[in-house]
Amino acid sequence: MVVSSLFSCTGQFMWKLGATRGVGFIAVGFCLYAVGALLMLIAYRFGELSVLQPILGLSYALSLLMGFIWLGEVISGGRVVGVVAVVMGVALVARSSR
């Protein structure tokens, strides 16, 4: 699910770029998002929904980093606290399944 989240988040990032840079970025974004969705379906075959679905919350952290690194977006303290809370929640849910 972590890899699925990475592909889906990167696909959405490409959509964002495509909004100003052209349809090629949008097409690549759809392909990446589709790979993420297929990986998600595979993961659902082998795991519990109540554990796997929250792991997709990692995309919040990935989006924050992508926006900061490649788009120069500002990261406020509130965003950091929110992302840390999400990541901690994902860790707790994932750990509870063991």
Score class of each variant (00 low, 15 high):
4 S>W: 04
4 S>I: 15
4 S>C: 09
5 S>V: 15
7 F>A: 08
8 S>E: 06
10 T>Q: 03
12 Q>A: 09
12 Q>E: 09
13 F>K: 03
13 F>G: 00
14 M>K: 02
15 W>Q: 00
16 K>P: 01
19 A>P: 04
19 A>M: 09
19 A>V: 14
19 A>N: 04
23 V>D: 00
25 F>A: 00
28 V>P: 02
28 V>N: 00
32 L>N: 05
32 L>S: 08
33 Y>M: 06
34 A>E: 07
34 A>Q: 08
36 G>K: 04
37 A>C: 09
37 A>E: 09
39 L>N: 04
40 M>T: 15
40 M>F: 12
41 L>M: 13
41 L>A: 12
42 I>L: 11
42 I>F: 06
43 A>T: 15
44 Y>C: 10
45 R>K: 14
48 E>S: 14
49 L>H: 12
49 L>C: 10
50 S>N: 13
54 P>Q: 09
54 P>H: 10
55 I>K: 03
55 I>P: 09
57 G>L: 10
58 L>E: 05
58 L>Y: 10
58 L>I: 15
59 S>M: 11
59 S>F: 12
60 Y>L: 06
60 Y>I: 14
61 A>V: 15
64 L>C: 10
64 L>S: 05
64 L>E: 06
67 G>P: 07
67 G>F: 12
68 F>P: 01
68 F>R: 07
70 W>R: 10
72 G>D: 05
72 G>F: 04
73 E>S: 05
74 V>L: 03
75 I>R: 07
76 S>C: 03
77 G>Q: 08
78 G>N: 04
79 R>P: 00
79 R>G: 00
81 V>T: 07
83 V>D: 01
85 A>G: 03
86 V>Q: 00
89 G>H: 03
89 G>T: 13
90 V>K: 02
91 A>V: 14
91 A>I: 14
93 V>Q: 03
93 V>W: 02
95 R>W: 10
95 R>K: 06
95 R>E: 02
96 S>H: 06
97 S>N: 07
97 S>I: 06
98 R>I: 07
98 R>D: 06
